[in-house]
Simulated scan of single mutants.
Amino acid sequence: MLFDTHVHLNAEQFEEDRAEVIKRAQEEGVEYMVVVGFDEKTIRGALEIAEENKKIYAAVGWHPVDAIEMTDQHLHWLEELASHPKVVALGEMGLDYHWDKSPKDIQKDVFRKQIRLAKKVNLPIIIHNREASQDIVDILKEEEAGKVGGIMHCFSGSVEIAKACLEMNFHISFGGPVTFKNAKKPKEVAVEVPLDRLLIETDCPYLSPHPYRGKRNEPAYVSLVAQQIADLKGMSLEQLAKQTTENAKKLFNIL
């Protein structure tokens, strides 16, 4: 039983065969998924998929790359959606210094607003971090984000950054990159993260694990991420799957 904590089944890459992709995942033992929406269109898509599938849930938030487009009305909408029975987290949110579409000060402001909203509605948060680790950690500390906790999604930072996030009540989630042969850092971090704070994901259709690197990713492949981490931890795939599923269900308050 596997739980893919971060999928984008709402992406256009799945428009032609979404039902088949979901079926393949279920056949591979992926029982639960969270579809992540990060702007108006993808949020609506995430909710639609979650409403149609019993064990698929939704996360709603505003992506840092598009921070410049978020309005107060959008924030109010996110607050309304927080009470939806299938919404289990706010996000993805955070900082992205790779692309320069949204100025850093606007990204930070939008990030802070969403953390404050998460504390108000008492939902965990899903963090997107690209080339902004220290600023992310600083803002999480300043905003006392540990009160709701959440996920460092597709973690690519150092052991030190991971430990700082763990201290603030966050889970560390690994995706396809942990399976790459040259991925020394994610493997080191995966070894260090305590079992009860570990999560797995695909971030599909992006970041396909080995041996599918460069091809469209899909939730069925989360078993490859789980197997890699199980090998690193010296445990069975079944043990790793059981633990990470329990962790996700507890974090997302799924009974």
Rank of each mutant, 00 (worst) to 15 (best):
V35E: 04
V35A: 06
V36H: 04
D39W: 07
D39L: 02
T42G: 10
T42N: 10
T42D: 10
I43R: 14
G45W: 03
A46P: 05
L47R: 12
L47P: 09
E48T: 15
I49V: 12
A50C: 08
A50S: 13
E52C: 05
E52S: 15
N53T: 04
K55D: 15
I56H: 09
A59C: 11
V60K: 11
W62G: 09
V65P: 00
D66E: 14
A67H: 01
A67I: 00
E69D: 14
Q73F: 03
Q73L: 07
L75A: 09
H76R: 15
H76N: 13
W77C: 11
W77K: 15
A82K: 05
H84W: 06
K86E: 07
L90D: 13
G91N: 06
E92K: 06
E92C: 05
M93H: 00
L95K: 02
L95W: 03
W99D: 06
D100A: 11
K101G: 02
S102T: 14
S102H: 03
S102D: 03
K108E: 13
F111H: 00
R112I: 10
Q114R: 04
I115W: 03
L117R: 07
A118G: 11
K119F: 04
K120N: 06
V121N: 11
N122A: 10
H128L: 12
H128T: 10
R130I: 13
R130N: 13
A132M: 05
A132W: 02
Q134I: 04
V137I: 15
V137Y: 03
E142W: 08
E143R: 10
E144R: 14
A145H: 07
A145M: 07
G146T: 02
G149W: 00
G150N: 05
G150Q: 02
M152C: 09
M152A: 15
M152K: 01
C154E: 09
F155G: 12
G157Y: 10
E160I: 03
C165S: 12
L166T: 01
E167Y: 00
H171W: 02
I172N: 08
I172T: 11
S173H: 01
F174R: 06
G175R: 12
